[in-house]
Design a binder for these strands. Sequence first.
RNA 1: GCGCCCAUAGCACAACUGGAUAGUGCAUCGCCCUUCUAAGGCGAGGGUUUCAGGUUCGAAUCCUGAUGGGCGUGCCA
Length: 590
Amino acid sequence: MFSMKQKIAQILADVVQQLKAQKIIPESLTPRVNVENTRDKAHGDFATNLAMMLTKAAGMPPRVLAEKIVALVADDPIVERVEIAGPGFINFFVKDSAKFAVVQAILEQQEAFGCCDVGQGRSVLVEFVSANPTGPLHVGHGRGAAYGASVANLLEMAGFKVSKEYYVNDAGRQMDILATSVWLRYLSLCGEVFDFPSNGYKGDYIYAISESLKVQFGDTLKRTALEVFAGVFPDEAQEDGDKEKHIDDLIVKAKNLLGAVHYEAVFNAAVNSILSDIKEDLRAFGVTFDEWFSERALMETGVIDAAIERLQVADKIYEKGGALWFRSTDYGDEKDRVVVRENGLKTYFASDIAYHFNKLERGFDLLIDIWGSDHHGYVPRVKAAMKAMETNSDALEVLLVQFAILYKGGEKLAMSTRSGQFVTLRELRDEVGCDAARFFYVQRKSEQHMDFDLDLAVSKSNENPVYYIQYAHARICRVLRQSEERGYVFDLPSGLAALEYLESEQEVQLVTELAKYPEIIARAALAYEPHQIAYYLKDLAHALHSYYNASQFIVEDNTIRHARLTLILAVKQVLKNGLSVLGVSAPEAM
RNA sequence: GCGCCCAUAGCACAACUGGAUAGUGCAUCGCCCUUCUAAGGCGAGGGUUUCAGGUUCGAAUCCUGAUGGGCGUGCCA
């Protein structure tokens, strides 16, 4: 089914052809026919700026050209009249009867209403969250999770084949620091007394893991504090100390004293515990993934070496100071980047090159990475590597998400995983609820800085617009139940047939909003902007609440009652569809 | 220093990607519950879109510069 807007666009495209035939504009010109929804009802339902855009090509003033265009507009059953206004806008007024057609389409297509095929079945990999498994997710990760999940939903509705993936950084120094932190806490539980390293992970969740180790291994992993700290470089608290050298020495000690097998056991206990916690956390947040992609697996299967080799073959790798460098400056990066360090260890960047190469090898047409905006400096070098490997670097789209700045008691909250001082996503869910949190995160444009006032979210949760939208849905459900309770039997065909009797301002306003939905979905999907859905839903809910206050739905008159119930049934469907894109529930009662 | 992002009502944010009189929520001030849920509706006030230039029929949106803020600029992840 063609939307009214598409219909108008088609009419105008025909006009353009006629303008060419009449030599008013040159044959070679292919103007972009722009049809927009009007903001002001006095301007009709749709408007085009065509006359103003062609004014130069046609060599005549916009209003004169507009006259010619209007004369060429073919009669169409949905168009009531056409007017010229302002500097040269052409306004289309659509017949009310045509506007109500959308109700039937909604009730036929149900949850599929709003889907389109702009994606044309292209496969897209959306990678998001990907927080290091060194601790529980905090509220900063929540924004990426909510945003990524909604973008994935949008793309799916727009006709893309979507896979969602979490990249697990389960290798590298940070993970060793984690394992060592867990082991040291375990030693404390065994009665050893020492100063915990300043650079270790100090959160309470570390103790929890240590305790499970104690249950599983008893005292088997115990070593004396004297042994552990003997010869270790002093921590920053001491004179000439260094927290980095201190923790690195402790990692070496842990590996040596425990032996490969037991160290591995501690390491795995830490990673598995935290990762399963993250999975459960996200699941409860309504965010699911098709794949949890392990960095360790990437290393163990030699993919990183293969990627570096590929760059070597392309002659983009050179050796300097004992390290291997990637010549990213050949592709516009600020400086060349190290992929293999002097000590033989591969950098995080080397993993990233391999990971992105692997993504493309899996056959995806489009790669979407959702990163915290603090990683924006990474974009040029990753794209450079993709170009160097002669892959399609245009396939990569990096979406940056600004941090949510948390406020509590008017104070900005500092956030650090290492120190263990942060508000977790779980705490946020417990305090404000899943629906409010999901909605709050995506109602802002992703690259906008966002203030998250916890006190407000907790104490006055009714200020959150999510309840406004959910309330509209619940109200409709209530009316439908009431109607049944009063003994009225609803019949959809009768309702659809009766729609022509609806004509109030609120009713026309509602169907106008409903008709916008598919277009909003398509636009939001292509721009990766779920906040547009949030704003749309607020508008739709507002139209419903206005209608509710202005009209009685459950009336004696069978025709009118059927018509009105049919209309709000369609509203209920679209509210539900839109909320589900955002991962928010549509309650039947509140 | 250099690079990227941001700046819109008291506060938090939109603005269909260059369109008509810049909107929405909160807060403030009036009204509307004997009627399907007042977590609602109707109305009012609040703006030199940070500043200065430029591009054109037309700029919050594009270009240049200034100011203010965030981030980046590791052989960290």
